[in-house]
Design a protein around this nucleic acid. Structure first.
Length: 826
DNA sequence: GACCTGCTGCGGGTTG
């Protein structure tokens, strides 16, 4: 470590703040001074941010000798990319304070959609030395005219929360922007930029760094905290296992046990898995403990942005005692005093759970404490699995996104809207990114043709001739001002569903609900949103008008959100835990509590051991069921169920209805399912997988759905001007139209190929499916027959009632289910 | 009265 003036100054300051400079900070600073790029990985509260932020400051103080006053005019030095706008606000505050204390005359600027036009113009005249920016706004900078000297003094780019962007198209946006800025800087000044990432713990940190800084010539380093963060995981275990339902996902049965936890803590975050679950919990806690009124808030993605800002601010000042939230508060509460975290229901993955645990106990010396509240009996084993995973550090990887052509097309037009681009230079730059390292010259040519002529099928339409060649300087540009403006409005990779804003008659926004939910409402109907009881009045101009309701009885909207499956990591550990419950005596409380339930399971059919795979054939009044438990998450189960159903139907003509959850799936038929030890290995075989998947599912229809986002991102479909967005249906139908055109006239279309690839990879999760089938083949498949449901099959059975939409059938099934319950409890 | 499923994230600037 170079003991320079700047370094000592910073250490002195950190000591006055009672922030011990942790060993890895020195390492970060040293490697920065030596010109490294790198990735910093440490738990929350270890000062990752200071460590990375202060590195360029130290370099600056060194450059200037002892002087803190700048010589001459200093431009933009550090670009700090954050995935969240709210995070930028908190960071700016902390950075400004640090700069002030160190007497460094730098300015900090925030640039994102929250910033006013005049502020942006001010920035353009004189860039702040530190710019906090989102990936989208960074691309918007590239889409500006005369942007070439913005980056003149830049020495460092930081990607904060890099694990969060990695593996997404937003991450690819960062990769592309970095490639361009590197290109501009090295072309003009022949100097290399330092690029630093800040990341939570994930399984593939090396790869994460390689994505951020793919340059082989650059010196690279991963800096880790020397000490581990202590995490205490406490399950909320019911007095008797009977208190926990066998199925269900809400968990409010144990709510009484949560009240004392909240009361004895200063501030508690309660994470739920869905927005409607958060609303229900909010109402329920208020009901059983009315004193929480005024100290409790609810925070999720469908709550009005202003209200959420207020809640985050209130967390800051410590006004709130408890906040019920979804993953909307996963990031960006680092600066807020939270001492207790509760996870309701399955966290679905190890990394996510540990990240949430880290929201509490914000210093390396404190222990993070997280309570786990199971929502059904089997979920208790998930805690046991996570405890093991935390101990052995089996944390999921984030797989980088590869070859998203929609993002590339958008990027090329972005550059053309800005200063224009040289296609040869840009091809080289793009090819040097991790995401596009496999990009072929002909694929790039196809992209060029697409943005200049609309590809081979849209040549007749001038609105797709976006980019023109400028003979005078040899650059590709967008000259049409309307096309340029439309493009700027559409920069980004987040394609949202059409949601309607909910507003009081008297004014004031509450939040958002989906079109389809509103379509079911009649005037006078009551629903919950943002913890309030509302009465529906009418829909006008895409606004849902409501008034306050005094009635207690309301319904809660359910939003059609993403379906986050159980991670394969957690699934694997969970399978181990299942096999252990019946064997020997256990220290682990969760396993002990589960024993009676597993004994019942064993008495009806079987509890699979580590090298076994259980298939249950259950005959009830309802029909013939096949249950299987791969623990691979519901997406994989959905495809696997369709695959097995298809393969059985090749043996005899038979039709099935299918149900699944994160643990397993069910096939149900009114005729007997042909099954024996030979057949079962055949139907679970990995052979001929791709062909059988194609035959068992409608890949075209699924790809078409994926194509909607791709069409929006690539600029094929215009989503409308702000405040006048198109309805879902319109976007769906125009993207479907393009899909059909390409299928018929342009089968080599890269966006079409991308839609199929994304479907196979992210929807059907084919690699994971293949892996699962291979594992099943190598294990002993245990076939068991029974006349009633088992504890394992019961939750899937209950879920399946909700899957089916036809109402009379549903009614009938619920009746049959009830009978099955009683039979089970005999 | 019991029972409820499905996350998050972003967002015009030029030219007169």
């Amino acid at each position: 470590m170079k003991k320079t003036v700047g370094y000592q100054k910073v250490v002195k300051w950190l000591k006055t703040r009672k922030r011990k400079p942790f060993p890895f900070q020195e390492e970060t600073w040293a490697s920065y001074l030596e010109g490294y790029s790198g990735l910093v990985n440490a738990p929350t509260g270890f000062g990752k941010t200071y460590s990375v932020f202060l590195a360029p400051i130290i370099a600056y103080l060194n450059e200037e000798g002892n002087g803190s006053k700048r010589k001459g005019k200093l431009g933009l030095r550090v670009i700090w990319i954050t995935p969240l706008r709210s995070l930028a606000k908190d960071l700016a505050r902390a950075m400004e304070e640090a700069l002030f204390q160190l007497d460094v005359d730098w300015r900090v600027g925030v640039r994102n959609g929250d910033i006013s036009v005049s502020e942006k113009q001010k920035q353009k005249r004189a860039m702040p030395q530190v710019l906090l920016i989102t990936p989208e706004s960074l691309h918007l900078l590239l889409a500006q005219k005369n942007n070439d000297n913005i980056f003149d003094d830049l020495t460092c780019i930081v990607a904060d929360e890099w694990h969060e962007l990695l593996g997404t198209k937003r991450g690819v946006m960062v990769e592309l922007a970095l490639s361009r800025i590197k290109g501009m800087v090295s072309f003009r000044e022949n100097r290399t930029l330092r690029i630093w990432g800040i990341s939570a713990t994930i399984g593939n940190l090396e790869e994460a760094l390689a994505v951020l800084q793919p340059d082989h010539q650059v010196l690279k380093i991963i800096v880790k905290a020397a000490t581990e963060k202590k995490i205490q995981i406490q399950s909320i275990i019911p007095d008797t296992i009977e208190m926990l339902p066998w199925a269900g996902h809400l968990g409010i049965k144990l709510a009484d046990k949560l009240v004392p936890v909240i009361k004895k803590s200063k501030t508690t975050l309660v994470f739920t898995n869905t927005r409607s679950q958060a609303e229900i919990w909010f109402q329920h806690l208020l009901k059983i403990h009315p004193d929480f009124a005024g100290q409790m808030a609810i925070h999720h993605g469908s709550i009005d942005y202003e209200l959420r800002n207020w809640i985050e601010e209130a967390l800051h000042t410590g006004v709130l005692k408890v906040v019920i939230c979804t993953s909307s508060l996963d990031l960006g509460v680092d600066f807020k005093p939270v001492d207790t975290v509760v996870q309701v229901g399955s966290p679905k993955g190890v990394a996510r759970f540990l990240q949430r645990a880290g929201r509490s106990g914000h210093s390396p010396f404190e222990t993070s404490k997280i309570y786990f509240m199971p929502t059904h009996a089997l979920e208790l084993l998930e805690v046991a699995a996570i405890k093991t995973a935390a101990k052995t550090q089996q944390i999921e990887s984030r797989e980088p996104f590869i070859l998203p052509f929609d993002v590339l097309l958008q990027y090329l037009v972005t550059l053309a809207v800005g200063n224009g681009f040289d296609n040869k230079i840009i091809f080289e730059e793009v090819k040097n990114t991790y995401a596009f390292s496999e990009l072929l010259a002909e694929e790039f040519d196809w992209c060029m043709q697409f943005i200049t002529q609309g590809g081979s099928s849209l040549q007749a339409y001038p609105e797709f001739h976006k980019v023109l060649f400028d003979e005078t300087d040899g650059l590709w540009k967008v000259t049409n001002r309307q096309i340029a403006m439309r493009h700027r409005l559409h920069i980004g990779t987040i394609v949202s569903d059409a949601m309607l804003k909910v507003k009081f008659m008297t004014g004031g926004y509450v939040g958002m609900v989906e079109e389809y939910f509103v379509s079911k409402l009649k005037p006078g109907d009551r629903f919950n949103l943002a913890g309030r009881s509302l009465e529906f009045v009418m829909v006008r101009d895409m606004l849902v008008l409501v008034k306050r309701s005094q009635h207690k009885k309301t319904i809660t909207p359910s939003w059609l959100g993403g379906r986050l499956p159980l991670s394969s990591n957690l699934g694997a550990i969970l399978r181990q835990k299942y096999s252990q419950v019946l064997i020997g005596e256990h220290e682990e409380e969760e396993l002990k509590v589960m024993k009676p339930l597993f004994e019942l399971q064993e008495s009806i059919t079987h509890v699979p051991r580590a090298d076994e795979f259980l298939v249950e054939l259950i005959h009830t009044k309802e029909g013939y069921h096949l249950f299987a438990y791969p623990f691979e998450g519901r997406l994989v189960h959905e495809v696997m169920a369709a695959l097995i159903a298809y393969r059985i139907s090749r043996l005899i003509p038979i039709t099935f209805s299918i149900a699944m959850n994160d643990y397993g799936f069910e096939l149900l038929s009114d005729q007997e399912i042909p099954m024996d030890d030979a057949i079962v290995y055949d139907v679970f075989s990995p052979d001929n997988l791709s062909a059988d998947i194609s035959a068992s599912i409608n890949a075209t229809e699924m790809a078409k759905r994926k194509f909607r986002d791709i069409a929006c991102i690539s600029g094929l479909v215009f989503q409308g001007y702000p405040g006048k967005y198109l309805k879902n249906k319109q976007i769906q139908s125009s993207s479907a139209l393009f899909f059909d055109v390409f299928e018929s006239y342009d089968p080599k279309n890269l966006l079409l190929r991308q839609a199929y690839d994304e479907n196979f990879h992210y929807q059907l999760e084919e690699p994971r499916l293949l892996h699962a089938l291979n594992r099943i083949q190598q294990s002993t498949i245990v076939l068991k027959w029974a006349e009633r449901f088992t504890p394992f099959s019961f939750p899937i059975k209950v879920d399946s009632m909700r899957e089916s939409m036809s109402s009379e059938e549903l009614e009938a099934r619920i009746e049959k289910m009830k009978a099955a319950v009683f039979k089970n409890l005999d």
